[in-house]
């Protein structure tokens, strides 16, 4: 049964990707991308990666299509037919890379074998001991937020960097020799009364759900990143329906920018606390007398930092993109 689902999902993925190669037009491409995201999320569920599936559904079928759509709303959905086509070169390069990859797979251990080297060396410790060492049932959370917490700090910095980069790039300022772009034919003054009423009742629940996901990550799929995405989605939904000025009045852009830095600082300072007491960076054992309690406090605090930064950066990015739309699109 599992195998059948596996094969079906993989075939659908190939079909979607192939359709993306063939299709012209950006709107169709964005739809296919989000289908691809959703299919891969389903595939991750079959592969037992529930946390990853949750995240991929939020990112691959949520945030990334949203950003793509906002861009297309500014630019227009047209894709030129033969623009920059270098098919022969591309086929050659892709062929070589693919062949090398296939060669690489030949000596790989068979799919799904429990005695594959990947499952025998580092991972068993996480499965056997993380319950005792951190007191958290979700092994993905304990590895993410404790054993490899430094990677996760890096991840938060990546998101923070993206926020800084987007503001830097989109901040007002024109380049020498800029051409006046043609305005895209989009009408924003369309009243969405029904949507507004429905969403007004939905948004509080979304925000509430975000808090649930934030603090439930220890026991099931979830955690700071997913919570941040959901929280930001609620805010963005409000912005999409009531317009950028309305949402900016509620949550002012400079405040969100500061919050994006605040989340990183919460994470970093937690690590520095350990250093001040003579333990390595991000060693949570200094946070409480009981080692398991200490781990749980540490994980909760850094997940909070992740959530704050992710939510604020996504809102910052949305503001920057929507602002382009308001100034260029009309």
């Amino acid at each position: 049964m599992e195998l059948a689902v596996n094969i079906v999902l993989l075939s659908l993925l190939v079909t979607t990707a192939a359709a993306l190669v063939l299709v012209r037009g950006l709107l169709a491409s964005i739809m296919l991308t989000s289908i691809y995201g959703l299919l891969s999320a389903s595939f991750f569920v079959i592969m037992d990666a529930v946390d990853v599936a949750f995240t991929e559904a939020a990112v691959g079928a949520g945030v990334s299509p949203l950003l793509l759509l906002l861009s297309v709303a500014v630019i227009g959905r047209h894709e030129a037919r033969n623009a920059g086509a270098r098919p022969l070169f591309a086929v050659l390069l892709v062929g070589i890379t693919g062949a090398l990859l296939i060669v690489g797979t030949l000596d790989m251990p068979a799919f799904g074998r429990a005695d594959a080297p990947a499952h025998l060396h580092v991972a068993p410790r996480y499965l056997l001991l993380s319950g005792e060492e951190t007191g958290i049932p979700n092994v993905v959370t304990s590895v993410l937020a404790s054993y490899r917490a430094y990677d996760t700090l890096g991840e938060v910095i990546v998101i923070f960097t993206a926020g800084v980069a987007v503001i830097l790039i989109l901040a007002s300022g024109t380049h020498r020799g800029s051409a006046r772009p043609h305005s895209a034919p989009v009408d924003t003054k369309d009243p969405h009364t029904i949507l507004q009423v429905v969403s007004k009742t939905m948004i509080p629940f979304m925000l509430l759900f975000a808090f649930y996901v934030q603090f439930h990550g220890d026991y099931g799929p979830g955690g700071g990143f997913q919570a941040g995405v959901i929280f930001a989605s609620g805010i963005i939904l409000y912005g999409l329906l009531y317009g950028l000025p309305a949402i900016c009045r509620v949550i002012r852009p400079p405040v969100v920018e500061l919050c994006s830095a605040l989340g990183v600082l919460v994470y970093g300072v937690t690590g520095i606390l350990s250093m001040l007491q003579g333990r390595p960076f991000l060693d949570y054992s200094v946070l409480a007398d009981d080692p398991i309690r200490a781990q749980q406090i540490g994980i909760m605090v850094i997940e909070l930092g992740v959530g704050i930064t992710v939510a604020s950066v996504l809102i910052v990015i949305y503001y920057a993109f929507a602002n382009q739309f308001e100034t260029n699109g009309n």
């Binding site: 592969m47 037992d48 990666a49 946390d51 990853v52 995240t55 991929e56 990112v59 691959g60 945030v63 990334s64 950003l67 793509l68 861009s71 990947a118 499952h119 580092v122 991972a123 996480y126 499965l127 092994v139 993905v140 590895v143 993410l144 490899r148 990677d151 996760t152 890096g154 991840e155 990546v158 998101i159 960097t161 993206a162 980069a165 987007v166 790039i169 989109l170 990143f225 990015i317 920057a320 993109f321």
Partner: peptide, 25 residues
């Protein structure tokens, strides 16, 4: 199933969306 690849990919997904948003900007 092995949790370590899941942890790595959670990070990588975030890196991916960060790159996409900078690229779109």
């Amino acid at each position: 199933s092995n949790p370590l690849p899941h942890v790595l990919i959670l990070t990588a997904i975030v890196v991916g969306i960060a790159t996409t948003s900078v690229g779109l900007a």
